[in-house]
Design a protein around this nucleic acid. Structure first.
Length: 1050
RNA sequence: GGGCGCUUAGCUCAGUUGGCUAGAGCAUCUCGUUUACACCGAGAGGGUCGGGGGUUCGAGUCCCUCAGCGCCCA
């Protein structure tokens, strides 16, 4: 059903700007999409769902180009699926990002007000962080909107909001009740500044200058022949206060031999430059064997005899133990063991059942266990300990040495290994379920190689430490009470179990047995035999008060951020409520993220989805490349090399940003994006490449024009007053130029659509180029669809770019110019142009939604009804249009070959024109000697040579006689003669022919060699051999023709 | 130490299962403002596919090895 055509009158060229004004268009278009409800999805059983949950950006700060990439790809998929008729939901939201955000806000408060979090208190700090969150959440969402992201904003979630909090409580309760959650001691990375644990991935190792101190520990009652001291070396002398043993290798001779043989193996393979160093090492080992081995073996015997050392300063007897951690090839061959303050020593402590003495308070000062050094900081203690040992004459040597120092990523302070109580999730069963999901193919990871890391990480089944000593996050819903004795424990348990919550099964109790096995020691340290923990499912003031009145106290710690992120695919859909959304949209369809959080996040979502719903969270995971800067470094906030996508949008437009992003999404794992500032001074516009220094400055001076400009980091009024220097990158220029090309193609259409009348096309009227563009459209549409559905984004963008520019603009539109000039051909030509544009716009929409929508609206003004075999009203918005589904019968290889002949002929003509330096207006005549079939296939396009190469085809066929003075081009079994009477530049022509001759001879030789190789002819597939033969024949014809032509001039 | 990548034109990258003369964009050079577009058009130059070995009729593509770079996990 169509209404009367209403074609707008043609605009004047000056009515349509020759550049797309993306700035104003983007805002308006986005607002229209939103008000049209296009982003919102409701469960609807008549449609298939397609769901993506956003990797929630951290509210730590603004988004950078890495996020732009991530979200572009998601929006491309969502828009594609929406057009394909799916009920597409893109679930948006943000992540509270525990430590990262708290650290950032704390630092800000410290800088601006000089206050610590303890000055503010928990409630006030959380309030402040919430204010920060509001600000950055708004900014992040604003950025996503400007990028064109079609998220269902009505459903926006935050990992700390009520819905998510409820999901967290229910999950925690469930795991607690299944006894998957426990509390235990663990050596953690302690940030003494923030007063919290930081995870391994938040620790950075720095190489700094330090010392290696050699101390002498006296032997208690040395027997005759025994040394009076044992020498140990350390880079952290202050930890000796917590030493509980000295270790020596159980078989030093064997250990030395092993090292030596390893060195010998290395020596054999070593490069010349390394040989000397390795030989020296082997020599040193030999010396060591003769000089030190007896002493080490003696120490080993002493250890076996249970001999003791006196720990200086503390006057504590400590044993000599044997453990493989002691390296006989290093230092004295003995190593001091501080189990509570060193990860390796901790393992030794566990192996040798050593006491673990914690000498540090949470704030980094020393505690009562360090005797008279109590309340010094670790740094002060170092000085004091070294000084005191020197006074005692127990320092043997101090070496200068470079040491690896772990530093907190968040605060920059050195990490102290620290033994504390932490909550854990038992991973064995849970991890196995997530491994099965990927191994069985229920969750498909693309590119497949990333499954390996996922599986091997899960395969370790290491328990997940989930407590963080922070205030920003989900507070652990556990109330605890120490029970000194079994009797206390039973009594408390009885009291607690009597509460109504227990009969309602919304609270659960667990008993923790003290980790200190020695009852005497427990008494000494005041440790209870048991601790009773109660976990409460839902927030309940009443129950909490009841528990507290019994004497239970709530755990202060909060949960690891990833705990709530792990629930994201179902918590956002309302779980644990049985919502219709959950029922309809879960499991989600795709998860698109970057590789650094495959284990931290992806694996845990699979675990939690399976645990909470018994189903995987998503069918498919796509891991996209990481964006590196021009120096090959990953973009991150801490480095300051992250680029605000809005900078790019301001300069190039959102479509260019998106196209650029999709275009660099190949299957590689990283991609470099060298960026520069552009001097905003109109007359200068100098490009200033980013360096490690200038990329973090709030303002800088242009080295060329010396004018100062501001950057994205500008905060002060003074900096903001300077003009903003945008960030540029070649990739986006290419993309921007592409949008402009598209804009102008549509501009051409608008200027030529007056009098457009919609009608189904008559196949009889289709020209070769019509059939060609239709055939190309079928191929391009299927290539793009297949590429996008398999996450090959760059392949899709390149196909589209080439098609739009090289096929559509450079040929189809160019040819149409001739046809528009002819009133008889015009109506059909208009319909073809309209149809081709319509299809192209649809194909480009997922990647470049704004400009395609803008052009669609214009096209709707001039050609509201369109179609190929039948005509229909176009949808009002492109976002809601259907994905192209052109009948495959339009695909036509013969037509494409036929058209390729025209293109090749045109190319030859243009090349000759350029070589001969003919002015564009100078018309030439040419003829083609070819068989009749070829002539017939080319003749429909003969007239186009005139407009596209200023060349007139005078004759074509088998009997063509070349003109006296001509330039000859032979290719594909034909000869083309360009009449150059009175025009020829002989030297140029000879040069061209000689070059051609050389090239042909080279190729012919290669092919002849190949074909004369009997093995090739007999082994290679027949079609390959045949292809080579045909190709050789043609090359020989061409060469003959070139030689004939050359002879004429020589 | 283990794992995963990368090395192709001056730069940034394509190159599905080995098979026509290894491609693109930018940059460079030449020509051109013809009424969609100079954010444009026409043309050109530029590569022993990191080195070495192997498998094969045939290797940028598969295998081994060496070198350099990056990331992840210890």
């Amino acid at each position: 059903m169509t209404t009367e055509p209403q074609t707008a009158t043609a605009p004047n060229p000056e009515d349509i700007p020759s550049r797309f004004d993306f700035e104003s268009a983007e805002k308006e278009i986005y607002a229209n999409w939103q008000s049209g409800g296009w982003f919102h999805a409701e469960p609807d059983s008549s449609q298939k769902p397609y769901t993506i949950v956003i990797p929630p950006p951290n509210v730590t700060g603004a988004l950078h180009l890495g996020h732009a990439l991530n979200n572009t790809l998601q929006d491309v998929m969502i828009r594609l699926k929406r057009m394909q008729g799916f009920n597409a939901l893109w679930m948006p939201g943000t992540d509270h990002a525990g430590i990262a955000t708290q650290a950032r806000v704390e630092k800000r408060i410290k800088d601006q007000e000089g206050k610590s979090r303890h000055d503010l208190g928990r409630e006030e700090l959380v309030k402040r962080i919430f204010q920060w969150k509001e600000q950055y959440e708004a900014r992040i969402i604003g950025q996503l909107k400007q990028m064109g992201c079609s998220c269902d904003w009505d459903r926006t979630r935050f990992t700390l909001d009520e819905v998510c909090a409820r999901a967290v409580r229910h999950t925690f309760f469930d795991l607690f009740r299944k006894s998957f959650i426990y509390r235990g001691k663990r050596l953690v990375n302690w940030d003494t500044y923030l007063g919290t644990t930081v995870s391994d991935d938040e620790v950075e190792n720095k190489t700094v200058k330090g010392n290696f101190w050699h101390f002498m520990y006296p032997v208690i009652d040395p027997q005759p022949g025994e040394p009076p001291h044992v020498i140990v070396a350390t880079t952290r002398p202050e930890t000796m206060l917590g030493d509980t043993a000295v270790a020596v290798h159980p078989d030093p001779a064997a250990a030395l031999s092993k090292v030596e043989s390893e060195l010998n193996v290395k020596l054999k393979k070593a490069a010349a430059s390394e040989i000397e160093g390795i030989e020296q090492q082997i020599e040193a080992l030999k010396t060591r064997r003769t000089e030190m081995l007896p002493a080490l073996e003696q120490l080993r015997e002493m250890a076996n005899d249970g001999r003791m050392l006196m720990l200086p300063l503390m006057d504590r007897p400590i044993p000599i133990v044997t453990d493989i951690w002691a390296k006989p090839e290093l230092g004295s061959g003995c190593v001091k063991i501080t189990p509570a303050h060193d990860p390796n020593d901790y393992e030794v402590g566990k192996r040798c059942s050593l006491p673990m003495i914690n000498i540090m308070n949470a704030d980094g000062t020393l505690n009562a266990e360090s005797g008279e050094y109590q309340s010094l900081t670790m740094k002060q203690a170092r000085k004091a300990v070294v000084g005191d040992l020197e006074a005692l004459g127990l320092v043997k040597e101090i070496e200068d040495r470079e040491i690896e120092m772990p530093v907190s990523d968040r605060s920059g302070t050195p990490i102290e290994p620290y033994l504390t109580d932490q909550w854990f999730v038992k991973m064995d069963t849970l991890a196995q379920s997530a491994m099965d999901a990927v191994e069985s193919g229920r969750v498909k990871i693309t590119p497949a190689r990333y499954s390996k890391g996922y599986l091997s990480w899960l395969g370790e089944k290491r328990d997940w430490p989930i407590s963080r000593q922070l205030w920003w996050g989900h507070q652990i819903p556990v109330w605890s009470i120490p029970c000194p004795t079994q009797a206390d424990c039973d009594a408390t348990r009885e009291k607690v179990s009597g509460l109504s919550a227990f009969s309602a099964d919304i609270a659960s109790v667990e008993i923790e047995t003290s980790s200190e096995p020695d009852p005497e020691k427990r008494k000494q340290l005041g440790l209870p035999d048991f601790t009773l923990h109660v976990c409460v499912q839902d927030e309940s003031t009443e129950l909490e008060q009841q528990l507290e009145s019994i004497g239970l106290v709530r755990e202060e710690d909060v949960l690891d951020t990833w705990f709530s992120s792990a629930l994201w695919p179902h918590s956002t859909l309302g779980w644990p409520e049985k919502t219709s959304e959950l029922d309809y949209f879960y499991p989600t369809s795709a998860l698109i993220t970057s590789r650094d959080i495959i284990t931290l996040w992806v694996a845990r979502m699979v675990i939690m989805g399976l645990n909470n719903l018994g189903d995987i969270p998503f069918d498919s995971v796509f891991i996209h490349p990481k964006i590196l800067d021009g120096n090959g470094e990953t973009m991150s906030k801490s480095k300051g090399n992250g680029i605000d996508p809005l900078d790019v949008i301001d300069k190039f437009g959102a479509d260019a940003l998106r196209f650029g992003m999709a275009d660099l999404t190949t299957e590689t794992q990283d991609v470099r994006l060298p960026v520069s500032y552009e001097c905003p001074n109109e007359k200068c516009q100098h490009q200033i490449p980013h360096t490690t220094k200038n990329r973090v400055l709030p303002s800088l001076a242009c080295p060329k024009c010396k004018e100062t400009f501001s950057t994205q980091w500008a905060e002060s009024e003074a900096d903001l007053a300077f003009p903003r220097g945008p960030v540029t990158c070649e990739r986006f220029e290419v993309a921007r130029n592409f949008t402009n090309k598209l804009w102008n193609a549509s501009r051409f259409a608008m200027l030529n659509l007056e009098g457009y009348s919609p009608a189904p096309i008559d196949e009889a009227h289709l020209t070769v180029e019509d059939r060609w563009i239709l055939s190309r459209l079928v191929t391009v549409a299927s290539t793009v669809t297949e590429a996008l559905e398999n996450y090959r984004f760059a392949s899709a963008t390149r196909t589209l770019y080439d098609f739009a520019w090289d096929n559509f603009c450079s040929f189809f539109v160019e040819i149409l110019k001739d046809r528009f000039a002819d009133p008889e051909l015009r109506p059909h030509a208009q319909r073809m142009l309209v149809f081709a544009m319509d299809q192209l716009l649809r194909l480009l929409h997922p990647v470049m939604p704004f400009i395609t929508e803008a052009i669609w609206q214009q096209l709707n003004r001039f050609a509201p009804q369109r179609g190929l075999e039948s005509v229909a009203d176009a949808t009002e918005c492109l976002i809601g249009a259907s994905w192209p589904a052109l009948d495959a019968r339009w695909s036509n290889a013969d037509i494409e070959t036929q058209f390729a002949r025209f293109q090749s002929g045109l190319g030859s003509l243009r090349e000759i024109r350029a070589r001969q330096n003919l002015s564009p207006k100078k018309e030439v005549k040419f003829s083609i000697r070819c068989d009749q079939a070829y002539a017939d296939s080319l003749s429909p396009m003969a007239s186009y040579f005139k407009s596209m190469a200023a060349a007139e085809l005078t004759s074509m066929g088998p009997d063509v006689v070349p003109p006296e003075t001509n330039a000859t081009v032979a290719s594909d079994g034909i000869e083309m003669f360009v009449d150059l009477e009175g025009l020829i530049d002989k030297a140029a022509e000879i040069k061209r022919l000689e070059k051609e001759q050389k090239k042909l001879e080279g190729n012919i030789m290669g092919k002849e060699k190949k074909l004369s190789n009997e093995k090739f002819v007999s082994s290679a597939p027949a079609e390959i051999v045949e292809r080579e033969r045909v190709s050789l024949g043609k090359l020989k014809d061409q060469l003959a023709s070139v030689i004939t032509a050359l002879k004429k001039y020589q």
